[in-house]
């Protein structure tokens, strides 16, 4: 009987002493956490994707708290909701977020583009690209090993028929795939973009055609017929000035290859959130 009483007392006293010491320590050695930091951090989604240009959500929150930046619209995945909350919490002016979505500028799928070599090495784009730009006939085209799909935090990219396809409904516009792709054929487009170019080849028309029958041959039909003068063929590749394009769709009709397509980006995650 005595034994158990002493045991209980000893353990309780040890526990109590530990508790008191901890309580005192946390009281006297408390480091005040910057209120603005915790407020900002609460507003951010916590995806740590780095689209804002800082090292994760903590980095952005810290930059806001320390006054390094005052833009509340840097969180692309969070969209307008996060920007609104941030500006409210920190007393900043609300700026509209340009919702973005990643787009793969290539349509050279398996039966459209020809391989120029057989590649049997390590199965990722980065490795394949190191060997003379990879096995694809078109050295600008998607290699299809899916580095971007692996890097995507939202599983928004799938490999279909040898090229990466991005599910705009899942894409949060963080831009990790843009930085991952060794061919640099993925770019971030504003969700308001109406027309997209599905090719990245800067080769002359004949050579492009030889490698892939879905490639832009630089015929300038779109450039000559665009009523808004929004398309220019630069380096044998149609490029769209999105500040001018109104999405009339004339170029899409006229393109003999079919590498100009309607964007259909209004279904995207970011655009849905903005509504």
């Amino acid at each position: 009987m005595d034994g158990i009483v002493i045991a209980v007392i000893v353990v309780s006293v040890v526990g109590l002493v530990c508790g008191v010491v901890l309580a005192l320590a946390s009281h006297f050695m408390d480091v005040p956490v910057d209120e603005r930091f915790s407020k900002a951090r609460e507003c951010l989604p916590g995806a740590n994707c780095g689209a804002c240009g800082f090292t994760g959500c903590d980095g952005y929150a810290k930059a806001l708290a320390d006054g390094e930046t005052t833009s509340s619209n840097l969180c692309v995945p969070g969209g307008d909701v996060v920007a609104k909350n941030l500006s409210k919490a920190l007393g900043l002016t609300f700026e509209d977020v340009e919702e973005k979505v990643a787009y793969v500028h290539c349509n050279g799928n398996c039966d459209r583009s020809k391989d120029r070599a057989h590649y049997d090495g390590i199965g990722d784009c980065r490795s394949a690209n190191l060997i003379y730009g990879g096995p694809e006939g078109c050295i600008y085209g998607c290699l299809g090993f899916g580095d971007c799909a692996q890097a995507c935090p939202e599983q928004a990219i799938c490999m279909d028929d040898g090229i990466a396809r991005i599910d705009v409904r899942k894409c949060i516009g963080c831009g990790i795939c843009v930085r991952t792709c060794p061919k640099h054929i993925i770019s971030l487009l504003n969700v308001t973009s109406k027309t997209v170019v599905q090719c990245s080849s800067k080769e002359k028309g004949a050579l492009t055609r030889k490698a892939c029958i879905n490639g832009c041959i630089g015929c300038k039909k779109c450039e000559l017929n665009c009523p808004e003068k929004a398309i220019k063929v630069v380096d044998n590749l149609a490029t769209i000035d999105y500040s001018l394009c109104n999405g009339c769709g004339k170029c899409i009709e006229l393109c003999p290859i079919g590498c100009l397509k309607p964007g259909h980006l209004e279904m995207s995650h970011g655009a849905q959130q903005a509504l």
């Binding site: 000893v10 040890v14 530990c18 946390s26 050695m29």
Partner: peptide, 19 residues
Amino acid sequence: VFILVIAALVQFIEIVLKK
């Protein structure tokens, strides 16, 4: 007792280091 003491100790060290 050791579990109790070590757990409290680690928490304490963390507070001290932070400060």
